[in-house]
Simulated assay, not measured.
Amino acid sequence: MEQYLSQNLGLTNGLVFVISAVLLLAIVLGFVTYSIYFQRKLIGWMQLRIGPNRVGPLGLLQTVADVLKLLLKEDIIPKAADKPLFIIAPVIAFMPAFGVLAIMPFTKTLHFADMGVGLLYYIALSGITVLGVISGGWASNNKYSLIGAMRSAAQMISYEIPLVMSVVGVILLSGSLNLIDIVEKQRQMHVWFFIPQILGFIIFIIAQLAELSRTPFDLTEAESELVSGYHTEYSGFRWAFFMLTEYVYIFAMASLTTVLFLGGWLPPFAFLSFIPGIIWFILKFGAIVFFIFWLQATFPRMRVDQLMQLGWKVLLPLALVNIFITAIAKTFL
């Protein structure tokens, strides 16, 4: 009897896990579809253009049509490419991007997994994506792809360090690596962490843009220099996987910023607590996504040497200063 109940419980848990994963994937795909639409519309308005407006009402189905076009395009693999590695590289890049979302809390009760070391899990898993990027660039047997992959590796490794160090102050203040506990600590302190950790917040925002390879740090693609960077030789659905990875990471990074520095689902003032927490989360999340897209129409691309100097000579020392100040304040205040 006990064995039967145990098997039943295991089957139920497995079914819940699969349904949760499918639901999360559906939410993410919906975000990716309409964040691309929103980005194109926003940049169009900022440049006095209309943006997508033909496919569907107000152009809402333009991204859907683009995805269908990509899925129907011929899957081309260069003759001189390392075929197995070329094929698997987009999957290696995408899987960590989707995996980190499993521990992201959208409210105190709305999350897929409550992990005690959720922040550490996020940092560790997100670092694997660079392997997919390097693999795709190298396996393409194309000089532009290889240069883009090397730039990506240098950029991600350089900015991963200040990114991680910028959240150490948050860990010191909250005393936890659990993302829900970090939000609850902000509730107890009656202040969002971006105020006492303003230096860490600025470093985190800059470093995450470099991690996402977004303007002004989009050196890994740099169309004017490298054609399209590490995915120059990719087409069809494999190219779509790389693009999907980029926008899923925008979803993940915007969510993480909201949780670590903007109070997650907490309202800005106590008298607004009657509004559901998920609404506050979406508003803060949306503001971060808007900021990332706004930069694309505003800033020029940095040079590679400027990018490296900013990471190692500016952000890293400032991150160390932030940890030092936070440790002193935690000790004496």
Rank of each mutant, 00 (worst) to 15 (best):
L177E: 02
E211T: 07
P196D: 14
Q188I: 15
I206Q: 06
S176D: 03
L173V: 14
F204S: 07
L131M: 14
G200C: 04
S158Q: 11
L212Q: 01
L172K: 10
S135T: 15
I123G: 03
P196T: 12
L146Q: 15
S152G: 13
L199Y: 13
E160F: 02
I202E: 07
I203P: 03
F193C: 10
Y121S: 00
I171S: 01
I157G: 04
R151W: 04
M156P: 09
F193M: 14
L179N: 04
V130K: 04
S176N: 09
W192V: 09
L173R: 08
V168D: 04
S135I: 12
S145D: 14
P216K: 00
V191H: 01
V133T: 10
I161T: 05
L173H: 09
S158F: 09
V168H: 08
F201R: 09
L120F: 11
V183I: 11
K143S: 15
R151Y: 13
A139I: 00
T129M: 15
A139K: 00
N142E: 12
Q155H: 08
L172V: 15
I206C: 02
I198F: 11
S174G: 10
L120Q: 01
L163G: 05
I203R: 01
V191W: 04
N141P: 01
S213F: 12
G169E: 12
Q155F: 03
T215N: 10
S140F: 09
Y144D: 14
Y122D: 03
G200M: 06
W192A: 08
E160T: 03
S126Q: 13
E160S: 08
V170Y: 04
R151P: 11
I128E: 02
Q197P: 06
M165H: 13
D218M: 13
I157Q: 00
I195H: 05
F194R: 09
Q186V: 12
I206T: 13
I147R: 03
V164C: 09
I195Y: 07
I171A: 06
I182F: 03
E211V: 05
S140T: 05
I123V: 12
L120N: 01
I206P: 00
L179Q: 01
